Amino acid sequence: MQETFDLKEIAEIRLAADRMADAYQKSADEFSFRILLPRSEKSNSRAKKLGMTMQGEFVLTLRKRDIVPIVREVRYVHDESHYGWILASSKMFDRFEQKA
């Protein structure tokens, strides 16, 4: 992973989207990020809202830079208090799969 973002607030998303877009613009083939979202037994609406907002901001940031993203994703249960979301280039996923 290049970097992990543990998102708890909407206000954190703008910085994360900018850093991800910078990394993608620099080297799309080496792009990989893990995003942790809050997990709760009572409600997962917060995680969904943060995830959808993150996705929208990231895509919008890339579009403003005239970049078409080619990114794969995996969503999973990271631990008892987080969902995990991996965004990476196809080449990075191929590397992950070869190591497994």
Rank of each mutant, 00 (worst) to 15 (best):
K48C: 11
L60Y: 06
R63V: 14
S32H: 12
L15P: 09
V74R: 12
E57T: 05
R34V: 10
D66Y: 09
E41Y: 11
E3G: 04
F96E: 09
F5N: 08
L37R: 02
M92K: 08
P38D: 05
L62W: 02
K26E: 14
L87M: 11
V74E: 06
A28P: 11
S32D: 15
G84W: 00
R34L: 11
L60C: 04
M52S: 12
K99S: 14
A16R: 01
R34Q: 12
K64D: 08
Y24S: 08
S43I: 08
E57D: 07
R46S: 12
E9T: 14
M1Y: 07
R72Y: 04
A21T: 10
M20K: 03
M1I: 13
Y76Q: 04
K8M: 12
R14P: 08
M1N: 07
G84R: 06
F31I: 12
L50F: 07
S40E: 08
F58M: 04
M52Q: 12
K49R: 12
M54G: 05
L7V: 03
I35W: 06
S43W: 03
K49P: 03
R63S: 14
D94Y: 03
R65H: 01
S27K: 07
D6K: 06
R19C: 07
K8L: 15
L87A: 08
Q25T: 15
I70W: 00
M52R: 11
S81E: 10
T61N: 08
F5E: 02
L7G: 00
H78N: 04
R63Y: 04
I13M: 07
A88Y: 02
G51V: 05
W85F: 06
R46V: 12
T53H: 07
A21R: 00
I67T: 01
A11F: 04
A23P: 03
R46I: 13
D66W: 03
L15Q: 13
Q55K: 13
L37Y: 10
V74H: 01
E41D: 14
Q25Y: 10
F58V: 05
I10M: 10
S32P: 06
S43N: 12
S40Y: 09
H78I: 09
T4P: 04
Q25C: 14
N44E: 14
V68G: 00
F58S: 00
I10G: 05
A88F: 02
V68N: 01
D79R: 03
Q2M: 14
L36V: 08
V71F: 01
P69M: 08
Y24E: 10
R34H: 09
Y76P: 02
L15I: 15
K26H: 15
R46W: 14
W85V: 08
L50H: 00
S81D: 07
I67V: 00
E80T: 11
Q55C: 13
K42G: 15
M1G: 05
F96H: 01
G84Y: 00
L60I: 06
G84S: 09
S89K: 02
R14N: 15
A100Y: 10
S27N: 14
K64R: 04
E97P: 03
F33I: 15
L62R: 00
E80Y: 01
L87Y: 09
S89I: 01
K42P: 02
Y24R: 09
Q98H: 14
R19G: 13
I67C: 03
K26A: 15
K26F: 10
L50S: 01
T61S: 07
N44K: 02
Q25L: 12
V68W: 05
N44H: 07
H82Q: 05
